[in-house]
Write a protein that binds this DNA or RNA. Sequence first.
DNA 1: TGCCATACTTACGTTGCCGTAGGTTACGGG
DNA 2: CCCGTAACCTACGGCAACGTAAGTATGGCA
Lengths: 225, 225
Amino acid sequence: MMGDVAIDGSSSTSGDKPRRGRRVRMTGAERRQQLLDIGRALFAEKGFEGTSVEEIAAKAGVSKPVVYEHFGGKEGLYAVVVDREMRQLLDGVTGALTAGHPRELLEQAAFALLDYIESYTDGFRILVRDSPVAQSTGTFASLISDIATQVEDILGLEFKARGFDPKLAPLYAQALVGMVALTGQWWLETRRPKKAEVAAHLVNLAWHGLENLEARPRLVGHRRS
Amino acid sequence: MMGDVAIDGSSSTSGDKPRRGRRVRMTGAERRQQLLDIGRALFAEKGFEGTSVEEIAAKAGVSKPVVYEHFGGKEGLYAVVVDREMRQLLDGVTGALTAGHPRELLEQAAFALLDYIESYTDGFRILVRDSPVAQSTGTFASLISDIATQVEDILGLEFKARGFDPKLAPLYAQALVGMVALTGQWWLETRRPKKAEVAAHLVNLAWHGLENLEARPRLVGHRRS
DNA sequence: TGCCATACTTACGTTGCCGTAGGTTACGGG
DNA sequence: CCCGTAACCTACGGCAACGTAAGTATGGCA
């Protein structure tokens, strides 16, 4: 037995394929992280139900029980992946909000979301897809919709300051997030135009409206990427 | 045997529950339609993979093979449901576009989409969810994204007339559709404010932008519902 | 150098569901 | 009234995937 196991020392943590090499023995934390990475990629590609535990384990070069040891099952792994991704996105967006002027705020938020989409494409795909089963409490259908509720607060403040009805903040928050989210999804396929340009146009639309659209919008803030 | 089958004559086509009554013998077309209705509802609630053929058949008060006779399998049924729903939506939207003035056009489109969401909630839920498996050609992830491409044309014309780059039409189309779609999804849960008001606010945002937002927007067109 | 905890395995039981083979009932026209 | 066809059923084969029980290797540390 064991004749089918070759010898291979390379054990880059981010190895994707079975890497059927000499049994790589990782530390718990390493393996856990690796499984999360692989799980994220697979869930993004094939959805929750379309991904099997076997598949995840195989790609990690281990057997199923390892996954169960670490996460207790598929749902467990998925939950951790989603949680981390939500944090990542929220941190990115809220961290980008430094401006005081509403327009710059909008600009920063849009850019941050696109940034996230670009850097963590798989995570975004997961957040856009629907969760395992219609969750218990009758919460939102889309994880992204969840994100939008986080935007409400900022908008609510702004509305109050401007004398608008703050009860409408959720509506506008959903609208804005939806705008960026679907555009982001579309942008994933085409990758054109450039991120900054897309952001500029989104801000153009959200800020000026179709009525006063600018032909060649620019971002007012300066950015690195 | 058969002691578990009670007697019941009522056979409303839109019967939802097993209706375990005296064997209701429908004509082919009737059964087909009923299966489509039930399938739509179940797919909307639990997604494609989460719905079993058995379940569909059971709710229709028949056994599995009937479903296979009519649609050849789960995918077949799903395909028909989606196709019909796409048509329904597209017809509704394009049919509503009668105005010449862009703003009214926008208004009509937004209203039509909300109309569809209200009247064909299940269908909308399906279109928002992702399709069975990542479809072959690498097409769009979301069916809704598909809808957006249909909007491009109208927007493209408008852009040309206004001297903007028509290549940007897709981007703005996605943005607009995303805006309405996610807001619609959110609105499904809360159902407040009223449809017309939601439409008015969406148009308010899309047309005037955050910069010149009106406090109490009104729809300019007159509507019945 | 021997031991023990940790990382990992093989092998299996079980379930749920797809899809099909082949038989059965009822309705309607001759 | 009879018979063919359309509608429908029971029953099963097969597979893929979840999750678990029980055993094996490995590497650090006394």
